[in-house]
């Protein structure tokens, strides 16, 4: 086995098996691009993978992902696997699977959708297709374009 070029992390989260080229979208989804994380983040891009040929990996130190973040990752990296690390050990594997219904994690792209008015309601999108990912707004029924840009 080839040596991994970035050292294992002591505590935090490893997001593995991200489709090649999608690591930066994962960073965006997690708010890392916007400076919302105050620990070290390592990004490995174009890493050989038995399963996928090539893959990306993101390691976030001292941060354990919450379910809502995992749901968001599923929209940009549905093949990813997530490991929670404590003291260099994998203590939890979180499943990344596309939810049939995505609640409160996406903003509707239709500016005239009622969910974009000041109403006390969470957005809700129904999964119409997994590959490619197609989601329709429960309220205005429009299909969401540019999913990554609409993750809340």
């Amino acid at each position: 086995m080839k040596e991994i070029k970035v050292a294992p992390i002591k505590n935090g989260t490893v997001i593995d098996h991200i489709a090649c080229g999608m690591a930066f979208k994962v960073l965006k989804v997690l708010g890392i691009s916007d400076g919302e994380v105050d620990s070290t983040v390592s990004v490995l891009m174009h890493v050989p993978s038995k399963k996928m040929g090539w893959k990306d990996i993101v390691k976030v130190e001292d941060k354990e992902l919450e379910q809502i973040e995992v749901d968001k990752i599923s929209l940009v990296a549905p093949e990813a696997s997530i490991n929670i690390i404590r003291n260099y050990e994998v203590v939890e594997k979180m499943d990344v699977s596309l939810p049939d219904v995505a609640i409160g994690i996406l903003k509707c792209g239709n500016p005239n959708c009622v969910t974009n008015a000041n109403e006390p309601v969470e957005t809700e999108f129904t999964l119409k297709s997994k590959d490619p990912i197609r989601l329709n707004c429960k309220y205005c029924d429009r299909e969401l374009d540019d999913i990554v840009d609409h993750i809340i």
Partner: peptide, 13 residues
């Protein structure tokens, strides 16, 4: 009747 799409669905909620 409402000018925004999805208003009736929201109302029903």
């Amino acid at each position: 009747r409402h000018p925004m799409e999805g208003a009736a669905k929201l109302a029903a909620d």
